[in-house]
């Protein structure tokens, strides 16, 4: 990153508003932002990520459109009931596309069989 300091957002992860939305989703999935708790405001997100407030607002609005957050007029945005389950369901359905397929592609390139791959996964799982 060219700027002097600060947390920022991942430069290579698609549009910034999408990254802002993903980070809030992550917080909901890992439980640090529980259902019915208040999400950060667009100004807070803008200041933290050092991005334009309009971009931050776009990320929040996307989550409202997805039903992950809901608005309380004059108060702010809150995590919708059932948001965590909804996100888990979506991420599970995307898991094969995002992780398993690229893994198999690389494994084939290197001549690693599916059985060897499964053995590797077992070994890694034991190590955790």
């Amino acid at each position: 990153m060219g700027r002097p300091a600060g947390p920022g957002v991942n430069e290579d992860g698609g549009p910034i508003f999408r990254q802002v939305a993903t980070q809030i989703e992550n917080a909901i999935v890992d439980g640090s932002l529980p259902e019915e708790s208040q999400a950060p405001s667009s100004n807070e997100l803008a200041a933290f990520h050092r991005i334009n407030p309009a971009t931050a607002a776009k990320g929040l609005n996307q989550l409202v459109a997805d039903g992950v957050l809901y608005k309380r007029r004059g108060v702010g945005m809150f995590v919708a009931p059932g948001a965590r389950d909804q996100l888990l369901k979506r991420r599970r359905s995307e898991f094969a596309d995002q992780y398993v397929r690229p893994l198999l592609t690389e494994a084939h390139k290197l001549g690693i069989s599916a059985a060897e791959l499964a053995a590797m996964i077992d070994r890694e799982e034991d190590r955790r």
């Binding site: 700027r3 002097p4 300091a5 100004n43 407030p53």
Partner: peptide, 18 residues
């Protein structure tokens, strides 16, 4: 310097948001 520039960006964003 880099610190002062960062200060400028942060204060600009905060005041612009308000």
């Amino acid at each position: 310097d880099a610190v002062a520039r960062q200060l400028f960006y942060d204060r600009l964003l905060a005041d612009y948001a308000e």
